[in-house]
């Protein structure tokens, strides 16, 4: 239990997907204009990453390993994640329409999100078991959600600020992203065994 907790803490803060590993920078910059949509994206990523961590671990353990196909794991995972997202979309549309209408736009975007694939590959690389994989996927996505919501809050303020002309828009956004990433480096000083 303690290991899982430490793993989750590490995935959220120390190894934050965006600020330490630089996964998922595309939605981080693309969908962070408003805190509301950023939260929607974060929730969709959390949902998909948790489920896909479980699915990809199962596929790896029971299909790829027995047949010695570990070298094809990237392709297999992309296939599984894409199929899974489609399935989740249909499932939500039928049974949880409220959730579907709030996540709806973001779900297809996540199909090709590198953060989701990154989580699946990291699970295998670090040799996690099933429970650890799910916990890692979930908490890595929580870290992603936290990062994108913080950044959206900063950008909401930046819109009202008047930086020098060459810095307007994306440049100042990237600069602040860098500053937040540096602040998160403080966590990497923490040593948890």
């Amino acid at each position: 239990m303690k290991e899982i907790f430490l793993l989750m803490f590490s995935a959220i803060f120390i190894e934050n997907f965006i600020f330490a590993r630089f996964y998922g920078c595309c939605p981080f910059l693309g969908v962070s204009e408003k805190p509301d949509t950023a939260l929607g994206m974060g929730m969709a990523v959390t949902f998909v990453m948790t489920v896909s961590s479980a699915a990809t671990w199962t596929v790896y353990e029971y299909l790829l390993l027995p047949f010695g196909l570990q070298y094809l794991k990237t392709i297999a995972f992309i296939l599984v994640i894409a199929g899974l997202v489609q399935f989740i979309e249909m499932f939500l549309k039928k049974f949880v329409p409220a959730l579907y209408s709030s996540l709806g736009i973001f779900l297809p975007l996540i199909t090709t999100n590198c953060a989701v694939l990154g989580a699946a590959l990291t699970n295998i690389q670090n040799g996690y078991n099933f429970a650890e994989s799910v916990a890692f996927g979930f908490s890595a996505a929580l870290g992603f959600t936290m990062a994108i919501v913080i950044f959206a809050g900063v950008r909401a303020r930046l819109r009202l600020a008047s930086p020098p002309k060459p810095f307007k828009g994306m440049p100042i956004a990237l600069l602040t992203a860098g500053l937040i990433a540096m602040a998160f480096m403080g966590f990497s000083g923490m040593r948890i065994a």
Partner: peptide, 12 residues
């Protein structure tokens, strides 16, 4: 996966 999706699109 294909069969699953096809079945899901019918069922859902």
């Amino acid at each position: 996966i294909g069969l699953l999706l096809a079945a899901a699109s019918k069922a859902f």
